[in-house]
């Protein structure tokens, strides 16, 4: 990483810090509501089992990191490429186009990690009575967290370079919606064996590997996807989206 990239990072962090309260609302509100209803209210009603929190917490964590990493990259890019063309301001910097793109992914990773650090204690506080976290494997937890952040920051770049500003609302309906529901955030992938075709179908969804990855790292005592599949999925999608995102970024930048 050279000085120019650090300067670009400094710029993005300055902008993010200024929008901190919006960031917290964006990242924190949904998990808060979810953990409150599913992790606090419903277990007390006896509608869901007390142990549901063990399934829910890793999923909520994956989802929060996923969405914030994606949005941190995609939303500014859509505006900068589409409306204002102010991406030129960044491209004037003495660094390659790929360097500018990689810095954007780095910003997404940082924001996703911050979201994770914010949501994990929040969800734990809401559901702590029934929780049984056994996060013995810290290396696995960190690996899953970083791979998840990178994967979705790169996906954010793919979305940000492909989508016109007018369609950004549509993306949330047709891409993010299904991704969340089919992402094993609210139910474990293992238990999908009752619907074999569906269990295979959801493997095209990168969120599945993130949710299951956090389950493997935080609640290894519950059944979860085998580790080789989790890491294979995360690394595979990481590579794919980084490659596609960078080449799309380069093409848009040269337009």
């Amino acid at each position: 990483m050279n000085g120019t990239m650090m300067a670009l990072l400094h710029r993005d962090m300055r902008v993010a810090r200024r929008e901190l309260k919006y960031f917290i609302m964006r990242v924190g509100l949904q998990p808060l509501l979810f953990t409150f209803i599913f992790g606090y209210v419903m277990p007390r009603q006896g509608i869901v089992a007390r142990g549901y929190g063990n399934l829910l917490l890793p999923g909520i964590l994956a989802l929060s990191m996923t969405l914030s990493g994606m949005q941190a990259v995609a939303l500014p890019l859509v505006v900068e490429f589409g409306w204002t063309k102010e991406i030129e301001d960044r491209l004037l910097a003495p660094i390659s186009i790929k360097g500018v793109a990689l810095e954007k992914i780095l910003v997404g990773i940082i924001q996703a990690v911050i979201a994770g650090l914010f949501v994990l204690p929040l969800a734990w506080l809401m559901m702590r009575s029934g929780l049984d976290l056994q996060a013995g494997n810290v290396a696995l937890l960190i690996s899953v967290a970083l791979l998840t952040s990178w994967l979705f920051a790169a996906l954010g770049m793919v979305v940000g370079t492909l989508v016109a500003p007018q369609q950004i609302g549509l993306i949330f309906n047709v891409l993010i919606g299904p991704m969340i529901f089919f992402g094993c955030a609210y139910y474990p992938w293992e238990a999908l064996k009752v619907i074999p075709w569906f269990q295979k179908f959801v493997l095209i969804n990168p969120l599945v590997y993130a949710s299951e990855g956090f389950r493997a790292a935080l609640t290894p005592q519950s059944p979860h996807m085998p580790l080789w599949l989790i890491l294979g999925g995360l690394i595979g999608f990481c590579g794919l989206f980084t490659y596609v995102g960078l080449s799309k970024f380069e093409r848009r930048a040269l337009e």
Binding site: A7, H10, R11, R14, V15, R18, P76, T84, K85, E86, I87, E88, D89, R90
Partner: peptide
């Protein structure tokens, strides 16, 4: 193509 997320001064500094 000025940076709209920054002030005028910050545009120069960054």
């Amino acid at each position: 193509n000025l940076d709209r997320s920054l002030t005028g001064r910050e545009n120069l500094l960054f």
